[in-house]
Simulated assay, not measured.
Amino acid sequence: MKEFHVLAAALLLLLISLIVSGTGNAVSVSEDSTFDIYEESERLVALTFDDGPKAGMTEKLLDVLKEKGVKATFFMIGSQAEECPELVKRVAAEGHQIGIHTYSHVDLSCLTQEEQKEEIEKSIAAIESAIGTTELKLRPPFGKISGSLEAWLDMPLILWSLDTVDWKGTDAAQIIRETVRDVRDGDIILMHDISEHGAEAAAGMIDELQRMGYTFLTVDQLFACRGIELEDGEAYRRAR
């Protein structure tokens, strides 16, 4: 009888263990669900690229992102989007977010309202011509904005919280090392399509941050996960 009770107790413990184990694996992660991704990893970052698209460089970045399974956000210069419409289409087709970075990479804070509007409207038209969307956000060149711009702009402005300074020609190893050292949960990381070592740095950075438990999202996905809602003309500045 004693052996029976011991066996019964062992079977009960095994059953409880199976139930707990099954519950722990019950959440299925859908590729299309931002919130499932968030549940899987609470360390989130958005990788962003400015100043493209640029033939010969943006393709390399897209190849890296595709290989790593990472979605990013590209803030495009309108004049270059006009020159490289097929690249704009590829960026969109591969699931990346597209924003605008003015038409000619100018300091918007130094322009009149009419000049600001021309820069924005021409940028929107360039993207719309390639992929037909106007659901865009603006990253102002140099991070420069003004009260007059915020007053009339009918889209949010997106700045950044971690600048890799890759445009200075810094080698990939240094970019990776400094980014890994400084990164924090929720960061918006700034890189550039035109960086000489951009693709190599992005590949190494992604590998290192993924090993550290970070998940890469687009800016919109990051905001959705964190409940961030911006009004038109409102600038997102994340304090570090």
Rank of each mutant, 00 (worst) to 15 (best):
F74V: 15
M76N: 14
Q80V: 01
A81P: 01
E83P: 00
C84G: 03
C84L: 02
L87Y: 05
V88H: 03
K89R: 13
V91K: 06
V91N: 06
V91S: 06
A92F: 15
A93M: 15
E94C: 09
G95K: 11
Q97R: 09
I100N: 10
V106Q: 12
L108S: 03
C110Q: 15
T112Y: 02
T112Q: 03
I120P: 06
I127L: 10
S129D: 15
G132I: 09
E135P: 08
L136G: 12
K137D: 08
K137R: 12
P140M: 00
P141A: 00
F142L: 12
F142P: 02
G143V: 05
K144A: 14
I145F: 14
S146G: 11
E150P: 02
W152H: 15
L153T: 07
M155N: 02
P156N: 13
P156M: 11
L157F: 09
L157K: 10
L159N: 10
L159V: 04
W160F: 02
S161L: 06
L162A: 11
V165E: 15
K168E: 10
G169E: 14
Q174I: 09
I175G: 01
I176H: 01
V180F: 12
R181H: 05
V183P: 00
R184T: 04
D185N: 13
D185W: 03
D185P: 02
D187M: 00
D187C: 00
L190I: 05
M191Q: 13
M191I: 07
H192M: 11
H192Y: 12
D193A: 10
D193C: 13
D193V: 05
I194R: 03
S195M: 11
G198D: 00
A199I: 06
E200L: 14
E200G: 07
A203N: 12
M205H: 13
D207W: 02
D207L: 04
E208L: 02
L209T: 08
L209M: 14
Q210F: 03
R211P: 04
R211M: 13
R211Y: 11
R211N: 15
Y214K: 09
T215F: 07
